[in-house]
Design a protein around this nucleic acid. Structure first.
Length: 287
DNA sequence: ACCCAGGGTCGTC
DNA sequence: GACGACCCTGGG
């Protein structure tokens, strides 16, 4: 049954910025500029009209509560942007470019698998792989005569063999996803324990134990999932590039020391480094 | 047709 | 700690 939730006078909410900034892979642009996506057991369309945000869709629960949580609507991004803008002009510019970004509260399991798939991969292909995983192992939901598929639970995904995964186009990530799925299935409380872990170093340490999770992927999981660690600073090729261009200015960006970037990010951006990273990433990729 | 890069990680040295 | 390999695909 279709539900609707309208958010009035919302600042810092631009669907394009939220869905195209690389934190999520299951949202697609419609002809009218709105976006439709799947999260949890929900299919939602998000449309911006003037200062109103209109959420429409089929929801396993109350659409308002689901959206408040997922879209991080209780966090004051105006305040965050004010703080970050005062740091320097580069950040101010990137924030103007992606002023409507919000960091989603995505499911931990989905984020874990999605970012294992992201390794040495590009966004269109990552999206394709995740879509095929969902279609083959998730639940079908029909809305407005179209089929959507939820991201498979770890139990559902455990039905896939390494070869199945390879055939869905995961490439060398097949074993990593297979093994991680196996670990999660064999330790039923694993993910809940991670969500209760307050110590960020301990949390990172635990995430790094999953096959396919290295430092970058661990940071992405901590930042983009319900773990919501805003102080982590995932360093990929784009972030390395933009930080080098703005501050370090070495000729060969691949030679820039990761420790140096981490130190710089911590000093400059402090406990909001993760959000700063998102503005910089989105700006450098798109502008 | 060919080459390159992509939200990196892993095994080996 | 530094390499190279890794599966696949879209774009130059």
């Amino acid at each position: 049954m279709e539900q609707k939730y309208i958010l009035e006078n919302c600042k810092s909410f631009e669907p394009e910025h939220i869905f195209e900034c690389g934190q999520c892979f299951r949202w697609n642009r419609e002809n009218d500029g709105s976006y439709t996506g799947v999260f949890s057991q929900n299919v939602i369309n998000v449309k911006k009209e003037d200062s109103k945000i209109i959420f429409t869709g089929v929801c396993n629960g109350d659409i308002e509560q689901e959206c408040i949580k997922y879209f991080d609507l209780n966090t004051d991004y105006e305040d965050i942007k004010t703080k970050l803008s005062s740091i320097d002009n580069y950040l101010q510019t990137s924030i103007k470019y992606g002023e409507g970004i919000r960091i989603l509260n995505q499911d931990l399991w989905e984020t874990l698998i999605s970012f294992i798939i992201s390794a040495n991969n590009n966004i269109p292909r990552i999206k394709g792989i995740i879509e095929r995983l969902s279609k083959n192992y998730g639940n079908k939901i029909i809305w407005k005569h179209k089929e959507y598929y939820t991201f498979p639970t770890h139990k559902q995904l455990s039905k896939a063999s390494v070869l199945d995964l390879r055939n869905l186009g995961l490439g060398f990530r097949d074993v990593r996803v297979y093994e991680t799925t196996k670990i999660v299935n064999e330790n039923k409380n694993k993910l809940e324990e991670l969500q209760n872990e307050k110590d960020i170093d301990k949390l990172r340490e635990e995430l790094l134990k999953f096959p396919g999770v290295g430092p970058k992927v661990a940071d992405c999981i901590m930042l983009f999932s319900v773990l919501k660690k805003l102080e982590v600073f995932p360093i990929d090729v784009w972030v390395r590039r933009v930080i080098n261009e703005l501050y370090i200015k070495k000729e060969d960006e691949t030679k820039v020391n990761k420790k140096e970037i981490e130190k710089l990010a911590k000093e400059k951006y402090g406990n909001l480094a993760g959000i700063a990273q998102q503005y910089l990433f989105y700006w450098r990729r798109g502008a």
